[in-house]
Design a protein around this nucleic acid. Structure first.
Length: 273
DNA sequence: AAATGAACCTGTTTGC
DNA sequence: TGCAAACAGGTTCATT
């Protein structure tokens, strides 16, 4: 579910909710999500205090006062809540962390593609396991020259490449489709065929769309929720994702769809070259 | 090395 | 109506 805008909203909300809070108890209800949860138990989180929460790619990093962090990934169906009161465990809630203000951090993930791991932070505040991630799309590290170099010599479709976290982090199926539509580039073009000029348009589209999606609270298609339970409203602004058979908002042509890298990829056959 | 496809898991929608 | 297949925001592993 969450791509970068959704992970950013979750991270901001968790920063407000968890900063300064001390862990008073941990409850695990599943042995593993994508990776084992049991190391959390061995890590003895109790008594430690969250110092801040921030995002890298699609991960939320909840830093603690002992130079460790709780690293979260939301997979396709991950939802986190911070709630007060005695609430019965929901069917797919796998991790509850009790806080010193009486509230409870709750991690729910129906499809279990997400993860919750405990890691040591390096001197820049990141777990070493995230070193393999490419540039953040909203920093200058992601620019037309870098993208052009990453696409060079690749026969893989450009959409698959911009969804590769080693090329640029955090862009998934929704925002890849939207950015390619905004840039006027067909999703099935081979990476090597994308010119530097087209890279400029694509990078500009990414840097324009992601912040708007963050502002709107992300995109709720089916089950995404922000930490306070609210939906993300960017789904209403999506131009091309999930609109196969509808009319292109720019030219009125029928929106087409192809499977690329196993994912549905909507595009306008007329506007996208 | 790069490209492709399957696997992980559950729930919902679609089509016969 | 019922059931099976297809599909869903992601990542990783195995196979060509």
């Amino acid at each position: 579910m969450p791509e970068l805008p959704e992970a950013e909203n979750i991270s901001r909300a968790l920063d407000r909710a968890l900063k300064g809070r001390t862990i008073t108890g941990v409850e695990l209800f599943a042995p593993s999500l994508r990776t084992p949860l049991t190391p959390l138990l061995d890590a003895a989180l109790e008594g430690h205090t969250f110092t801040s929460v921030y995002r890298r790619g699609r991960y939320a990093i909840a830093a603690m006062d002992d130079n460790r962090c709780l690293m979260l990934h939301f997979g396709m169906s991950g939802v986190v809540r911070v709630e007060s009161g005695k609430i019965p465990r929901r069917k797919h809630e796998h991790l509850l962390i009790h806080l010193d203000d009486g509230r409870v951090f709750r991690f729910e993930d129906t499809r279990r593609f997400g993860m919750a791991e405990c890691h040591i932070l390096n001197d820049r505040g990141y777990p070493a396991v995230l070193d393999c991630l490419g540039p953040e799309p909203l920093t200058d590290d992601f620019n037309p020259e870098v993208l052009h170099a990453a696409l060079k010599g690749k026969r893989t479709p450009v959409k698959v490449l911009i969804m590769d976290n080693a090329v640029v982090t955090g862009i998934g199926n929704i925002y890849a489709a939207e950015a390619l539509f905004a840039a006027g580039i067909r999703p099935d073009r081979q990476g090597a065929s994308i010119t530097l000029e087209e890279c400029r348009a694509l990078v500009a589209a990414v840097k324009e769309i992601l912040p708007r999606a963050i502002e709107a609270g992300g995109s709720t298609i089916a089950d995404f929720r922000n930490v306070d339970g609210s939906e993300g409203y960017f789904a209403h602004q999506l131009q091309i994702y999930g609109r196969e058979g509808e009319k292109c908002p720019k030219c009125g042509s029928e929106i087409a769809s192809v499977k690329l890298g196993g994912r549905s990829s909507c595009y306008c056959p007329r506007c996208q070259k």
